[in-house]
Design a protein around this nucleic acid. Structure first.
Length: 423
RNA sequence: GGCCCCGUCGUCUAGCGGUUAGGAUCCAUGGUUUUCAUCCAUGUUACAGGAGUUCAAUUCUCCUCGGGGUCACCA
């Protein structure tokens, strides 16, 4: 069983999507289920509706899952297990105040040492614990020995007991902390492999330690993906709004820091050849320009009629025309901005006003020509225009722009619409 | 600062002891194109530094330097 565990606290980020994609691909390869666990423990940070939005995005990207679990619904299990740990003396109540701990952290920082809890409350006499009415947290005893995490990408990584620390598993308000809830839930869901971002690396020994303390023998496999370096932060929603295709975004996210056998592919193809062994150990760079290139290639491969829908039509000719415009546009949004002016009222520069009037008149009176050359020759002859007055003006009239693709190509796909374009 | 990762053309990278160190992109030049762009061809540019191991290090080890991650009663 694999899992994707997003928190509904903001827009889904490309890094989150990459993690989801990898989990999905590997779940298919291993023929295991993928579940989605919404990490909604932090009531303050949860954003209404984000869970639904994340689920909708997963569907849009073709990521199939068998179950959705809301973490907040299993808090009673978390409490029960914390209690068990206390009974077995594997965890203890800690009465240290947040303010005092904060002070300790600052001291550690000033003396340039790594902060670690001093276990002050670990061996409190029972009567002191019982009689104490102050709010408390529950901490798990730090491990006696170093914990080795065997990561599929990074290899064996060792964490000393102090690095794992006697960390908090239940906060004062009786809610489980992230690491505790996460470790327990992975255990309860019988998760066999966790693929997540590198920033969770230091949580891994903590989560292993929690399960070991609970007597859970099964080893969970871990893969920590190198982080994505970005110049700006990109949300999936934004990329979609900018006119990037889900197929292209997936393609790109699977490609970076990887060794795909080909440049353009869909997620189904990736299931055939994807291997965690090929993932780079170094951080990967997210380049919007590279994404644009890949998006362009996906648009080029798209069915013409389907493509035309993205720019507001339902006609293969417009789809083909859009492909011609791909030489200067990379997203559906940009294509739309190129196609729309063609059918809009044209604004002709002052110097060409007369020529434009003459040409408009000629075009309106012209018969239908299958070939551009015939059309061109006719217009040229009938209007008496030549040079700039001909080529520039014709381009303005037909495309609504000063520059653009070869006008013969434009004509090829637009010839049936001349009446609508030149008004 | 502690711990943990990473360090190849300007950029993104291939390479897993012996290579003319490959590709993509950028840049430059030439060509195609009655426009801008595209496209094609050609060209410049890299193993962070220093020790070691070895017949042989880009590749293995250590140190320095540089970059990143993490050190919460957040997830």
């Amino acid at each position: 069983m694999l899992r994707f565990a997003p928190s509904p606290t903001g827009d889904m980020h490309i890094g989150d999507l990459r993690v989801a994609l990898f989990n999905y691909i590997v779940s298919k390869q291993r023929n295991e289920d993928l579940i989605v666990r919404i990490q909604d423990l932090d009531k303050e940070k949860n954003v209404e509706g984000k869970d639904e939005e994340i689920l909708a995005l997963l569907s849009l990207f073709g990521i199939e899952y068998t179950q959705v679990i809301y973490q907040s619904e299993s808090v009673r299990y978390h409490s029960a297990m914390a209690l068990e740990l206390i009974h077995e003396k594997k965890a203890f109540s800690c009465f240290c105040s947040p303010e005092w701990l904060e002070k300790r952290r600052e001291e550690a920082k000033e003396s340039k040492k790594a902060y670690s809890y001093d276990d002050a409350c670990r061996n409190l006499p029972d009567e002191l614990v019982i009689d104490n009415m102050s709010p408390f947290t529950i901490r798990l005893n730090r491990p006696d020995e170093a914990i080795i995490v065997n990561d599929a990408i990074k290899g064996k990584v060792s964490f000393k007991p102090d690095a794992v620390d006697s960390f908090v598993i239940m906060s004062q308000d009786k809610t489980p902390t992230y690491n505790f809830a996460c470790a327990v839930d992975d255990m309860l869901s019988d998760i066999s492999l966790v693929i997540r971002s590198e920033e969770h690396m230091s949580n891994t020994p903590k989560q292993d330690h929690i399960r070991a303390s609970l007597g859970y023998d099964k080893k969970v496999e871990y893969v920590h993906l190198p982080i994505i370096k970005e110049d700006d932060s990109f949300s999936v929603k934004w990329l979609l709004e900018e006119g990037f295709l889900p197929a292209a975004i997936s393609n790109y996210l699977i490609s970076i820091g990887n060794k795909p056998p080909l440049e353009i592919f869909d997620t189904k193809d990736a299931i055939e050849w994807f291997s965690l062994d090929n993932i780079s150990k170094s951080p990967v760079r997210f380049s919007i320009d590279s994404l644009r290139e890949i998006n362009k290639k996906h648009l080029k491969n798209m069915d013409a009629t389907e493509l035309s829908r993205y720019v507001g039509f339902a006609d293969a000719n417009i789809g083909e025309l859009a492909k011609v415009y791909l030489e200067e546009a990379s997203t559906t949004k940009e294509l739309k901005a190129k196609i729309e002016p063609i059918f809009a009222v044209k604004e002709i520069p002052q110097e060409f006003t007369d020529a434009a009037q003459a040409m408009t008149k000629t075009i309106k009176g012209a018969p239908f020509f299958e070939e551009y050359d015939d059309f061109k020759n006719y217009i040229m002859k009938e209007s008496g225009l030549d040079g700039k007055n001909f080529s520039k003006v014709l381009r303005f009239l037909l495309s609504g722009a000063e520059n653009g693709p070869d006008i013969a190509l434009v004509y090829k796909y637009l010839k049936n619409y001349i009446g609508e374009i030149v008004k």
